[in-house]
């Protein structure tokens, strides 16, 4: 009885880690790094996490968790409330509908999928912010941010896979 309870608690804690890790990444992404020009093109860590978990463990990152991550990001980053929530939910929806093309494929397919999803997500956020602020936002910075995000993805992917092996594959 007692071991069953602890086992269940352990499993529950492990299953919460994808969501927890995503929240931590959102917080880390606003920590000042004091690198010239970096804050404007900082890679979208939350988008990477949402993409990765929705490809590999969608059951551990339900839609309301994605919504919560987006709202937290909006609150911390100072963007209009709801923008990142929509962007992350759109990315999540795209991944879930196209998931069968991505699971159990080589890393490059997953990376290519991320390139498409990130491009769509950033276009959506650009359009939303432009509409909300009634100006066309300068898109040049976004291109650099996009490229940097793509470049950082393999590192984060490796990290997420390590995390999976350490915390989730023991079930």
């Amino acid at each position: 009885m007692k071991t069953a309870f602890w086992q269940r608690l352990d499993l529950w804690a492990r299953q919460l880690t994808p969501f927890g890790l995503t929240l931590v990444l959102v917080i880390l992404s606003v920590v000042p790094l004091h690198v010239p020009g970096f804050a404007r093109v900082a890679p979208l860590l939350a988008l990477m996490a949402v993409y990765h978990w929705s490809v590999f463990y969608p059951s551990l990152l339900p839609a309301y968790a994605v919504f919560a991550v987006g709202v937290l990001q909006d609150c911390l980053a100072g963007t209009a409330l709801g923008v990142n929530a929509v962007v992350l939910l759109v990315a999540y929806g795209i991944v879930l509908s196209q998931r069968r093309f991505l699971v159990e494929k080589s890393f490059f397919v997953v990376w290519f999928g991320f390139a498409i999803v990130a491009a769509l997500a950033m276009s959506v956020s650009w359009a939303l912010v432009s509409v909300i602020s009634v100006t066309l936002i300068d898109a040049e910075v976004l291109i650099f941010q996009y490229l940097l995000t793509l470049g950082v993805y393999p590192v984060m992917c490796w990290f997420f896979q390590r995390w999976q092996q350490a915390f989730l594959n023991t079930e």
């Binding site: 409330l81 709801g82 929530a85 999540y92 909300i132």
Partner: peptide, 30 residues
């Protein structure tokens, strides 16, 4: 649930335009 959440996010955006103070307070608390 998914569509509801997307709708909720859009509602938040509208709320941010309509009631700036409320949204700012939420942001400050978070």
């Amino acid at each position: 649930l998914y569509l509801g959440l997307v709708g909720a996010a859009f509602a938040l955006m509208l709320l941010g335009k309509a009631d700036v103070l409320l949204v700012e307070r939420v942001r400050a608390h978070v």
